[in-house]
Simulated scan of single mutants.
Amino acid sequence: MIIEIADIAVQPEDKDAFAEAIQRAARTVLARSPGYRRHIIFASHETPGRFVLQVEWDNLEAHTVGFRQSPAFAEWRAIIGPYFARPPHVEHFDVVVSG
């Protein structure tokens, strides 16, 4: 299992519209992707317009190849991309400890 963490910035005035768009995109596009397990979307209290997306994938390739190189990625970006204040910062993590 691999965890994708995406740190996403949108304009504060777009935060409600983005929250709706990313929820819809996750439900209709992301969740259909092979290797997808689950996701959590966080919205910051301290920094309006900052979101963190956590996605659990079967393995790194499920995200970097299976999803990002598929037509689903273009669909995903078409829904949420117009809200980005700048490109998201994305990293992949291994779980060390889970409580």
Rank of each mutant, 00 (worst) to 15 (best):
H92S: 01
T64C: 10
G35Y: 02
A78F: 09
D16S: 05
R77F: 15
A17N: 15
R50D: 04
S44V: 09
F67R: 01
H45F: 09
A43N: 04
R86Y: 06
Y36G: 03
V95K: 08
E46D: 15
I3F: 04
R37M: 02
D16R: 05
A9Q: 15
R37I: 05
I79A: 12
A25K: 10
R50W: 03
P88T: 00
P34M: 05
A62P: 02
L30H: 02
Q54N: 08
Y83R: 08
V65G: 09
E61G: 03
T64Q: 14
S33C: 08
I80Q: 04
I80D: 06
A85T: 11
V52M: 11
V29D: 00
L30I: 00
A21P: 04
S33F: 05
F67P: 04
I41P: 00
W76I: 09
T47Y: 13
V29G: 01
Q54C: 12
N59S: 00
R24I: 09
F51C: 03
I80P: 07
R24A: 13
G35K: 02
F67T: 04
P87I: 07
Y83S: 10
R86I: 08
I80Y: 08
M1I: 09
P48S: 03
I2S: 04
F67A: 02
R77N: 12
R27Y: 08
R32K: 10
G81A: 06
V90E: 06
F51G: 01
H89V: 13
V52A: 03
I2N: 03
H89K: 15
H89Y: 13
I79S: 06
E61D: 14
H63P: 03
V10K: 02
A72W: 07
E61L: 12
P48E: 06
F18T: 00
V97I: 12
H45E: 12
H45M: 09
H89S: 13
I5E: 14
S33A: 11
A26M: 14
V29I: 15
D14P: 09
A43E: 15
R24L: 10
D16H: 09
E56R: 05
G66T: 06
H92G: 00
E20C: 06
P71A: 14
W76N: 02
G99Y: 05
V90H: 08
M1Q: 08
E13W: 13
F84H: 08
E75Y: 03
T47W: 11
I79L: 11
R24V: 11
V65T: 15
T64H: 07
V90A: 10
E13P: 05
V90L: 11
P34T: 01
N59V: 05
D7W: 08
N59L: 05
R37S: 01
V95F: 02
A6E: 02
A62G: 00
E75Q: 14
E13G: 06
V90W: 11
L53R: 10
D16Q: 08
V55R: 02
R77G: 11
R27V: 09
E20D: 11
I80N: 07
E20P: 00
